[in-house]
Design a binder for these strands. Structure first.
Lengths: 191, 191
DNA sequence: CATTATTCTTGACGATGGTCAAGAAATCAT
DNA sequence: ATGATTTCTTGACCATCGTCAAGAATAATG
């Protein structure tokens, strides 16, 4: 069951069996239903997780409407990593868009693992580095491409999103209004 | 001379003297003149650095004009960290906006230090985490605030920038054209 | 199947900011 | 100081996108 987590980690460091056994015990499967709030706004995020199954979104409410920052699918890292690191409260909600489950690792346990096992500390470095790379790519995407280019990128890389997530959430994720996304689609299909 | 680097590190981990002595030796002071290119575009960034003195900018050329991504001042971290981590070529230039110098630590040396000293591996984690936090703040700033709000933030936090950097570079950093920044200033001052 | 709720599309309009162009102001070099 | 270069300002115009509103299409519920 937890094999996929280990696979994720194995791409980052060589994690010996002993360390993995220690680590493995700290993961707890949390099951959720569509619509469940996995992390409330105004809360400190004290865990990281890995999606086992289901779709999850990460969003905030700004001036009355929702701004979607991320979607998460199986085998992806799940957290408000910013709140996790800084200790500040999250502005964002984490919400299940379908039934599913995720593997939860609490901050206190991870920090204990960091202290006890240098290789896990290194794993933490690698994770932070990966997340840094991911966010820089996202920034590039948002700042240097037009909404239409962003839409093309999205359907190339993640067609599942389009099938399983309401379009207005995708619009928000792309940084445009629902109406604009609708017009973008029209523009593309009449070409 | 290198004390400020250690101070920077001391805020992240407790770095014993022995480790610091090893690390210290790896830093080399690179002096530069205004206009010098410290990292060329289309190059892999194989170092991190800390500004000793001077002002530096980080920018790319997109469709013929410059997009400024960051400015760096003394005691700040200096790198194309994305290229550094991913091994990909940088799209960005690092350019000196004044005479000055920075402490350079080569990737190969840092990686050796990571392997030899767990506490430095942890320091690497902390650095990656800090940089992650910085970039998320920057993204928030760019995506969720108006250009005028961004300008206000900037003059509050970094008045030195306004005094020492041409306005068109600041405009680019704020994500607007030079003309728009000029109009923003006018709007503010006639209030 | 019928009803209700949700999501998507389309049009009209306005606000914002980009581009182009020209001139003013400031800075730099000889 | 003076001429040259760089930087900043201002106006005119245009393109893009957001908002509001109304209706169409789709999905959910009993």
């Amino acid at each position: 069951m937890k094999d996929k987590i280990r696979k994720y980690f194995d791409r980052l460091v060589i994690l010996p069996d002993e360390e993995w056994r220690e680590m493995e015990q700290c993961f707890e499967l949390i099951e959720f239903k569509k619509g469940d709030i996995l992390l409330d706004a105004n809360t400190h995020c004290n865990f990281i997780g890995f999606v086992n199954n289901g779709i999850i979104r990460f969003y905030e409410i700004k001036k009355g409407n929702e701004k979607v920052t991320a979607f998460w699918f199986p085998n992806e890292f799940l957290s408000n990593y910013r709140s996790f690191l800084s200790g500040e409260k999250s502005n964002h909600y984490i919400e299940a868009l379908s039934d599913g489950g995720y593997w939860k690792l609490k901050k206190e346990n991870l920090f204990k693992l960091y202290d006890d096992f240098p290789v896990i500390d290194r794993l933490g470095r690698k994770m932070a580095e990966q997340l840094y790379l991911m966010i820089t790519k996202r920034v590039d995407n948002l700042l240097r491409e037009t909404p239409e280019e962003r839409y093309h990128n999205l359907i190339d890389k993640n067609s599942r999103l389009l099938q399983e997530v309401p379009q207005y959430m995708i619009a928000s994720y792309l940084g445009v209004s629902a109406e604009t996304l609708s017009r973008i689609k029209k523009r593309i299909h009449t070409k």
